[in-house]
Design a protein around this nucleic acid. Structure first.
Lengths: 233, 233
DNA sequence: TATTATTGTCTCATATTGTTACAATAATAC
DNA sequence: GTATTATTGTAACAATATGAGACAATAATA
């Protein structure tokens, strides 16, 4: 940690933060971390090395947090208001982490932060806290703890953009296992849109889009007709 | 100019660039400037002061270029690849401007640039070049000169986002005079979408949206029935 | 006063979406 | 085994939205 965050290695005054979405079958959740001994909750974020593409920096950072390699990432907004930076909070976090305050002075200035959201398959991940944080956990999007700085605004905006992008991009794909039932697909859509959808209309629309492959039926151990499994083309 | 761009005043390694859209009644155009004696064409851009919100910095910069006060501005993407920076080009621009190369050394490093697009009423603007540029002119979006660095990618992406936002936001509003005919409104839509629309269907859809106010008829001096004038609610 | 081009609106055809109904069926209860 | 249960897949019809054409209204011009 100490040597990893040396001033000269990073672009000054820029950071990124990530809203990492997962779906547990019923709810849309995001990853939130808690910094050591501070009671401060935050989105996973980081800095950009001088010799690194912005997209690469975010990809590497999110990969490290989740252990996943291929991650659906989308840049959605850059947050640049003066009031968003909070040097006092950053000082506490660095202090409690045991790092040298002098070495980290560059982190206490003003930061413009680029927001990304990620869509990942909930089941494949067991997130691990890093050196700065006590814990990193899934929280349903409507039961988040109070987040530091402008991170709640970041979540709100990420959800907005996710919903706006929803029709064009094939978003369900990234939140589900490779094979899934029509009901699961509908539940993802409902969780993201925040509303109930009509079953028959949803099914017809999905099938008419020519984006799904139908597979063998699932033996699912429930007392009713077994549904087909689908995957994306 | 010399003292205006002092290093300590600005956030290092961050800039903004703007795609300023206007509509002349037939074509969608954007503002492109040419730097002194370099043959380099670029989008209007600038830096962010240490004590200034990102949004404010862009608003002020675009206001200065266009002379307009209330500008519809939308942040659409942040460009952060390593390869986008071109220190040689920046050196030429600064050299030809007569500024001190040493004072401006901070401009030759790597930059992450936040892209904004603006929608303005073409008729109200007579853009003026600043100290660094020979000219600033309107160019139809499909007849642009070759732009420096990644500015062509910036235009492409701006158009993409503009089209994607098109249905939700009331975009025509910002490109037209306060009162306009249905035909003008249709022409804006056609210019942005890049396709012809059916007159009757377009009219029906617009009127059903309950966003327009119908005014008195225009005495327009053409040999046919005069159209109504409309404004946005 | 007739002609012209464009406008505003109507109608009918077609496509899309909402809603209801119902047969198929995999486990469970008996 | 056989009936029961909950859910699934699909069909059928209704309601709504959109595509396409027709036509009367009308402001300037010939």
């Amino acid at each position: 940690m100490k040597s990893k965050l040396k001033k000269g290695d990073y672009i000054q005054n820029i950071s990124y933060d990530s809203v990492i979405f997962g779906f547990n079958g019923a709810q849309l959740k995001i990853l939130v971390l808690e910094y050591h001994n501070t009671g401060l909750y935050a989105l996973p974020g980081g800095f950009i090395r001088m010799d690194e593409d912005l997209d690469e920096a975010v990809k590497n950072g999110v990969s490290k947090r989740t252990g996943l390699e291929d991650i659906y990432l989308e840049q959605y907004h850059t947050f640049g208001s003066l009031s968003r930076s909070d040097s006092a909070a950053m000082k506490r976090i660095i202090m409690e982490s045991g790092s040298d305050l002098m070495d980290c002075e560059w982190m206490f200035g003003r930061f413009i932060s680029v927001g990304y959201y990620a869509l990942i398959n909930y089941e494949e991940v067991s997130p691990k806290p890093d050196e700065l944080s006590d814990s990193i956990n899934w929280y349903p999007i409507d039961e988040l703890p109070t987040l530091m700085m402008d991170h709640e605004e970041m979540v709100t905006k990420a959800l907005q953009v996710l919903r706006a992008n929803f029709e064009n991009k094939l978003i369900g794909m990234n939140l589900l296992p490779a094979k899934f039932t029509m009901k699961q697909l509908q539940q993802v859509h409902e969780a993201i849109l925040g509303e109930k959808l009509r079953r028959t209309t949803f099914q017809r629309k999905m099938l008419s889009k020519d984006i799904l492959v139908r597979h063998e039926k699932l033996f699912q151990g429930k007392a009713h007709k077994a549904p087909y499994l689908y995957s994306f083309k």
